[in-house]
Write a protein that binds this DNA or RNA. Structure first.
Lengths: 217, 217
DNA sequence: GTCTATCCATACGCTTGCGTATGGATCAAG
DNA sequence: CTTGATCCATACGCAAGCGTATGGATAGAC
């Protein structure tokens, strides 16, 4: 009995292959999506793969589609039913640092933007996220031009924190210090004294939405 | 007469190979550093390469060392003789968005942090840059803990802007709007009403160091 | 002019991964 | 029990890239 990562070599699905491909991307980048190594890690051979997919590119597209779907689900599932735009940004910020794998996936996929297949996926996901932020800032009372700047600013900070957490994890604090860090960024990136927003009250602020655990997956 | 990219096939140097490797990294990522394709692009064959280098890894190390050196030179050459910490951060911000190739290089190299050879280089360069920012914020009067937070914050924004410029260039403004964007970030990332800094005067602020061209290389 | 060091070309074997072809195993239908 | 469909294994040809071995070309030393 092979005590491998795969217990029973029962029938694999195309989704299983796509998920394995995403795992490979999160670890070794896009080039790690190789048919034969993936088959080995799944406990089967290429024969299985070419039954479910036409070629390597088809697997790549399936994996990217699965990724885009997950990212889109995330953005609405985790912070969907939240009316307050301030709390929405806060939740988005926390969600961005929530999943280690999701961050690595994003960076790895974006790093291969030269491949034309990947480019479209990255653009859609990025634009969707920034548009979400843009809407939040608009809802906060910012003028469109300013809202675009703030949305880009905030999104850049998200992405940069992902990079720092991956490349120099020692420089990223944990626990209480991390909470302070996030609080500082949120306080800075969501200015309440905006030139357009009046003395509006944010009930979620008094509840301190920042200091409720942000790490872990 | 071959009107190739290389006019005369005179003697190549190891530095030429390393520079070509960096070009390859900036375009196709670390995996694009392949001996035979590089040799083709240089107008020679593998025979030349294995005269100058022991193997592919040696070239990679040479290229990364060259990159680290260039990054270190940059940080002191472009903003070295600047006493005012505020202006230092401003210059650093502008330098970060100055060279398109440098940004792509940074992202491409960082994307391969799983390779142990690369990891050390990325860590050194990143830590050096963040320490530079940390010193700036300390000089601005911030307490060490806060200075670390602000330095990380600012650095994350740098990196994120690099990503946005690479992945979704449409979402990155140009010309006057870009200037506004940079001005907003700088104004936000260098708070003058810090809890620790007194009524200190920054002569470079009245000179408006932000609005003097930041694009191009 | 010969000699030697430097730099590169050519040719070979080796590995890895892609894609195809074909057969084997399993299971449900009839 | 046979048949067909589903899922996978095995074996092959092919291309690309690494590393090595060896010889050729050029230039300066003497």
């Amino acid at each position: 009995m092979p005590a491998s990562a795969v217990e029973a070599k029962q029938n694999l699905t195309a989704e299983a292959w796509a998920e394995a491909a995403l795992d490979a991307i999160a670890n070794g980048g896009l080039d790690a999506v190789a048919v034969e190594p993936l088959a080995r890690s799944l406990g089967v051979t290429k024969g299985s793969f070419y039954w479910h997919f036409a070629n390597r590119d088809a697997l790549l597209r399936a994996a990217l589609a699965r990724w885009e779907q997950a990212e889109t689900d995330d953005i609405v599932a985790r912070i969907g039913p939240e009316p307050d735009p301030y709390a929405r940004i806060v939740k988005l910020f926390k969600a961005a640092n929530a999943s280690y794998r999701a961050g690595r996936l994003y960076l790895a996929i974006a790093a291969a933007e030269d491949k034309p297949v990947v480019q479209a996926f990255v653009r859609r996901v990025s634009e969707r996220r920034m548009n979400y932020l843009y809407d939040c800032y608009c809802a906060l009372g910012f003028a469109p031009a300013l809202a675009r700047h703030w949305a880009r600013f905030a999104y850049a900070t998200f992405m940069g924190n992902l990079q720092i957490g991956r490349d120099t994890p020692d420089l990223m604090p944990t626990d209480a210090e991390f909470s302070e860090y996030v609080k500082l960024m949120i306080k800075t990136l969501i200015p309440r004294s905006a030139s357009a927003v009046a003395g509006q009250d944010h009930p979620s602020f008094s509840a301190d939405p920042v200091s409720s655990g942000a790490t872990g997956d």
